Computed example of a mutant assay.
Amino acid sequence: MDGYSPVIFYDFGDYVRTLCGDDAEQLTQFETLLEQVVPYKAHTEKYFTAACGPLPIERYSGITTSAPSTNSLASSYSQTSWYLATH
C-alpha cells in the first residue's frame, strides 16, 4: 500500500482478508463488522509517495495498519509508547 520495500503500511481490510484465507464465514463476519465501523469510505484513484510517485489504490477499507513490518524504518515500532501500552 505504501511503495516502500519491504512494505510498512497495509490496508486493514486486505490484511484481514489475507489472514482469513479460505474461511468464508470468518471473512463475512469481519466484513460485516468493518461496514459498521467504517460506514463511509472514499479515496482518490491514486496516491502519491515520495519513494515511487503516484500509485493506484487497489484496495481500500478505510483503515490502515502498520504491523507487521520488516522494514528498517519501522524497527523502533516495538519501543513506541503505543506499542508498549497495548502489547
Rank of each mutant, 00 (worst) to 15 (best):
T80L: 10
P68Q: 03
G53S: 09
E25S: 08
R17C: 10
P68I: 02
Y77G: 01
T70W: 02
H43L: 01
E58W: 00
Q36C: 08
H43R: 13
H87K: 15
D14Y: 10
D14F: 05
T49A: 13
D23E: 04
G3L: 12
P39N: 08
T18L: 11
A51C: 08
F9S: 10
G13C: 04
D14I: 01
V7M: 06
G21Y: 14
Y60S: 04
T44G: 09
T49E: 05
L27G: 01
G21F: 13
F48L: 12
T65G: 12
K41Y: 10
K46P: 00
Q26G: 15
S75R: 07
D14P: 00
P39A: 01
F12D: 06
S66K: 05
E58T: 06
G53I: 05
G62R: 10
Q26W: 02
L55W: 03
K46V: 07
T32N: 10
I63N: 02
A24N: 08
T28W: 00
W82R: 14
P56L: 06
Q79H: 10
F48I: 14
S78V: 01
A24Q: 12
F9M: 11
E31Q: 07
T86A: 13
G3Q: 11
A42R: 14
S5E: 15
Y47M: 14
A51Y: 01
L19G: 05
L19E: 08
L27F: 00
R59T: 09
T65A: 12
A24I: 06
D11N: 07
L84W: 06
T18I: 07
I63K: 05
V16E: 08
I8G: 00
T49W: 07
I57L: 02
P6E: 03
L55C: 08
N71A: 03
D22S: 13
